[in-house]
């Protein structure tokens, strides 16, 4: 560990140039940056002053549209064709809802809700399920043993288990057989100041991404002023993803 401290300190000085130097990290042209928060400088850890969240306006979400789902799939390289549909990975999915009494129908995207009190993190035996300082719930697949207890614990069915060896991964989004995975809120994009792929792809602008920790952010202001819903609020998990129009 100590051997690397030198490297790290040295790197802090040159960090910015390095970041631009590697083809991967360079920001592709033409991609909107998040106005409210710039890319975190290289070498800086995620901060607990920030809490990333999303507000989804289901009144704008069309039932047949799955632009967010396809954007997620291509961004995160979820392209494998697993034969059994029940064994496929779903980081985000569209749910069509119909009120049993009134018959009102609507549609919404469902993914990891990035809870402040995530049950998956509580139950994970190794600590692979984790919440980053800025509220993003991730699976550290370097120590995930594939026990799937988190999948039993998640009330949103947001997690998937990779049932087959993969080869087509996006280099920025490693994923592989035998581990559990879920929406990362496009952590690799967010860290360099881009929006999550689904947010960017929504043709109706139904998805708003932002910092719940900043009272002046658009998302915080809207949550303060408008009626919003937490899915399964009864469990008091304080999800980072909020809905309108459910």
């Amino acid at each position: 560990m100590s051997d690397n401290d030198n490297g790290r300190r040295g790197f802090l000085a040159t960090g910015a140039t390095m970041a631009a130097g590697l083809g991967f990290v360079a920001i592709a042209p033409g991609i909107r940056l998040i106005e409210i928060a710039q890319a975190r400088p290289a070498g800086e850890a995620a901060s607990s002053a920030v809490r990333w969240g999303m507000l989804i306006d289901t009144t704008k979400c069309a039932s047949g549209c799955d632009a967010c789902v396809s954007a997620c799939a291509s961004e995160n390289g979820i392209v494998e064709q697993v034969e059994d549909p029940a064994q496929r990975s779903h980081w985000i999915r569209k749910i069509d809802l119909k009120d049993k009494q009134s018959g009102r129908e609507h549609s919404l995207p469902m993914m990891c809700q990035h809870c402040a009190e995530p049950p998956c993190v509580d139950v994970c035996p190794t600590g692979a399920s984790m919440k980053r300082a800025d509220g993003i719930v991730l699976v550290d697949r370097h120590i995930c043993i594939g026990c799937r207890y988190c999948m039993m614990a998640c009330p949103y069915k947001a997690r998937s288990f990779v049932h087959e060896p993969l080869t087509e991964q996006n280099p920025e989004v490693p994923r592989g057989v035998g581990c559990v995975e879920a929406c990362t809120l496009c952590v690799h994009r967010v860290d360099r100041g881009q929006l999550p792929a689904c947010v960017e792809a929504c043709p109706e602008g139904a998805l708003l991404f932002g910092d719940l920790g900043d009272p002046n952010s658009e998302i915080s202001r809207r949550i303060a002023q408008e009626a919003t819903t937490q899915v399964r609020a009864d469990l008091q998990l304080n999800p980072g993803v909020r809905y309108q129009g459910i």
């Binding site: 190794t126 995930c144 043993i145 594939g146 035998g178």
Partner: peptide, 20 residues
Amino acid sequence: LGRADRVMIAATYYNFTSVF
């Protein structure tokens, strides 16, 4: 386990809030 090869991790990393 999905990664039975990682039993050593199961034996050395503990999350004490986990019933497992």
